[in-house]
Design a protein around this nucleic acid. Sequence first.
DNA 1: GCTAGTATACTTGTCTGACGATTCTGCTCG
DNA 2: CGAGCAGAATCGTCAGACAAGTATACTAGC
Lengths: 228, 228
Amino acid sequence: MDGQTSFSLGPSSLTEALYESVRKRIVNGEIAPGEKLTEIRIAGEYSVARPTAKACLERLTALGLLRRTTHKTAVVPKLDEDDIRDLYFSRETVERAAVAALARTATVPQAAARAQAAMKAAAGDMAFASQVEADIAFHSALVAAVGSRRLSRMHEVILGEVHLTMGQFQAHRTTHPMNVVHEHDDILKAIGDGDPERAQQRLAHHLDQAQGRLLGQLRRERSEEASA
Amino acid sequence: MDGQTSFSLGPSSLTEALYESVRKRIVNGEIAPGEKLTEIRIAGEYSVARPTAKACLERLTALGLLRRTTHKTAVVPKLDEDDIRDLYFSRETVERAAVAALARTATVPQAAARAQAAMKAAAGDMAFASQVEADIAFHSALVAAVGSRRLSRMHEVILGEVHLTMGQFQAHRTTHPMNVVHEHDDILKAIGDGDPERAQQRLAHHLDQAQGRLLGQLRRERSEEASA
DNA sequence: GCTAGTATACTTGTCTGACGATTCTGCTCG
DNA sequence: CGAGCAGAATCGTCAGACAAGTATACTAGC
């Protein structure tokens, strides 16, 4: 049995660490939408070689967290109304399947309940980033509990973009987080009751609310720009 | 000189061409499951630099067409029973949403009809690879017709793995392709009738058949190995 | 003859440096 | 004032190199 000699928790490689770090900065909105990310800039900021930075940007591009065409600089995408609708249509497809599967066996995922607790805690002190994280964690746990590697893989990509848009609208949050918490509870309850239909219906309603908030904030922001 | 110029109109870059070529070889079963693909081998076979080969292998790994862990050589995965079930669960999730959406507006995608024709043509001369391609093209067209970029993106990944398994069982095809054609027709008809429920039900049945064939062939192959 | 531990070869991770190709920018010229 | 051109910035690809990790073969000891 070996001692505690290695960083078993941290990323296994430099590329991995770089990817995680840049990803975090993008989804949290620290890098504004439309901002350019050149390979050289990343390489410079993190003191890595350009090929390493390149690999990182390519990965993020594949996940939809950056947009890039050949010979052009990668930019953080600004999702428009169509994007958000498309994103939520895809999201609903995946999550519907998940909650239906869970409700069929009436298994309420523990991790989702934990995320709920975290969200309630964060609701008090208005820690926005924590709220978003807990929200994401809740939905992530829901899908993970199904136990399908491929469904989770698809969902991760979708949630990445969801996280991105939520991060970008950070300063304009309009709803009390407790509303979200209650909607989550409704979904869990339906799952616990073994009622796939109701679970899907609650989920659809919840996602509809979330999508509506995003679209509303997008329109608000746009009209602000127009009057400026 | 013709060797270099052949890339000019298809893929935009060398990396792209390399990726397409290797991908094709994998899904068609030209590279056997379990076979190792070292970066150096790819670089040598295609006369490209190792970093280019590396990028190619990384992309394929992200799509599930190769398996690889740090510092280990990439291998073509051999999907087991659990993998196939998981794959088809995910596939059904995505395609159900697609046919339901199409049926709601009763729009029968042209491209799917064309794929059907191609499949009928290939059925006569038992051109296996063409049959698989037409099958894939049909389902791909179905999802593409919905017009959701993200749904299509997810579906592409799924279909890649589906193609892979079908290619690997190439020599053991058990069903007449016309059966598949008829099942496809049923789905299209339900969509044309604007009946989302029936469309989903037909689709589920079709996928169940396909999954059953794959599992059957997998078991057959395994018992052959055991007796040898 | 067999197990165990070490030495060696193979492969990948990452870096440095470089050159051609492409896109963008700003400037000159009509 | 617009259009075309030159230069700068950036990306695509390559070559070569070294360190670090993994797998394998070989030797030593029982």
